[in-house]
Design a protein around this nucleic acid. Structure first.
Length: 194
DNA sequence: AACAAGATTAACT
DNA sequence: GTTAATCTTGTTT
């Protein structure tokens, strides 16, 4: 099994290739991002516990969902020690079961793009804000080990303007379900080294 | 009470 | 490359 008490930075690459099942839909994770906790300025945990971020501090093995831009539900797997606020954002995956339902939830979208991008992934899994706080393997999705990925790539997080020098986004290189990288419009530091 | 920004996406030009 | 869609939260008046 997977040790969810590890910090997000250590856990994130290990989640690649893992299987996440929500009801009939099973995803093979191909892209994730680590959010380290209160000391991570880009993390929702940085401001400390709030009603909205309650699930983030509830301890490892919790699903934390948030609403992005009023439209998209994005999901994280909370990890690390309770109260740390560490979590891994699920950015993309390959639908390996429940294709019919996934297609119904995203009509007209090619299979390979069904769960490409965090908002799309949440849509395919059928998540809403009410799923925030669900416990993995109980009232939430089930996480299981899968075939280890052929390789792991890393780089700066998508849409994040701080801590940009740290490679906290991990993906399976060459996988067609991985989302395109879009730099935050606010990044000031020179990141050409990446 | 009003406002701006956001771990985004898809549809434009 | 630009922009609309939509809503919650934190910040400012």
């Amino acid at each position: 099994m997977i040790d969810l008490t590890a910090d997000a930075e250590a856990l994130a690459p290990r989640l690649l290739g893992c299987l996440l099942r929500q009801d009939e839909v099973v995803l093979r994770l191909t892209e994730v991002e680590a959010y380290s906790g209160r000391d991570d300025l880009a993390a929702h945990a940085a401001i400390g516990p709030r009603p909205r971020t309650r699930a983030l501090f509830a301890g490892p093995g919790i699903l934390y969902c948030y609403l992005s831009h009023g439209i998209h539900i994005c999901g994280n797997i909370v990890c690390g020690l309770p109260g740390r606020g560490s979590a891994v954002l699920l950015r993309a995956g390959e639908v390996v079961a429940g294709l019919e339902i996934a297609r119904e939830r995203r009509p007209g979208v090619p299979d390979v793009a069904l769960a490409r991008g965090p908002g799309n992934l949440g849509r395919v899994m059928g998540w809403t804000l009410a799923d925030s706080g669900a416990r993995l393997g109980q009232d939430g999705p089930v996480l299981a080990s899968g075939e280890p990925p052929s390789g792991i790539a890393s780089g700066p997080r998508v849409g994040v303007s701080v801590a940009h020098q740290r490679p906290w986004r991990f993906w399976i290189p060459g996988d067609p379900t991985v989302s395109a990288y879009r730099r935050s419009p606010r990044v000031v530091t020179d990141d050409r080294a990446w």
